[in-house]
């Protein structure tokens, strides 16, 4: 009975991702054209640029939001696809648990990285 709520959040997460990932893609991949948030110049993934972004609390917070929204949107989408293969109910339960654990695990890892990255950057 939960798909009504979960799918509503799936859509809402899609809208959040659209904004944040759109920005992320402009920063990382349209750097030659647009070139924002890469203060050190060079490549967007150069350490100096990573640090510059990491110093910003706003960047850190939106990364954590994107992380959560992306994980929920992607893993719920995957769960939908897997469930459409009509697995037996016990397998469905197991899949839900595995996906939930993967999601929570990666969320913790990413949040830790964003937060510690923020500290490291602020000290640099």
């Amino acid at each position: 009975m939960r798909d009504q709520k979960l799918w509503t959040w799936h859509l809402a997460a899609g809208a959040i991702i659209l904004v944040l990932l759109g920005l992320h893609m402009v920063i990382m991949h349209l750097d030659a054209l647009v070139g924002i948030f890469n203060p050190a110049g060079g490549h967007p993934i150069d350490w100096a640029n990573v640090v510059a972004r990491g110093q910003s609390l706003a960047f850190t917070a939106t990364y954590i939001l994107l992380l959560g929204a992306g994980l929920f949107h992607g893993l719920y989408g995957l769960r939908n696809i897997l469930f459409e293969l009509d697995p037996a109910p016990p397998l469905k339960r197991a899949l839900s648990w595995v996906l939930l654990l993967v999601g929570v695990g990666l969320f913790i890892l990413g949040t830790w990285a964003a937060w510690v990255g923020h500290q490291v950057a602020s000290m640099t």
Partner: peptide, 18 residues
Amino acid sequence: LGLLLYFLLHIVVTSSRA
């Protein structure tokens, strides 16, 4: 699915910045 696969690996890889 492609984005999801990339994203899961991406989280692990970019965590190294910490």
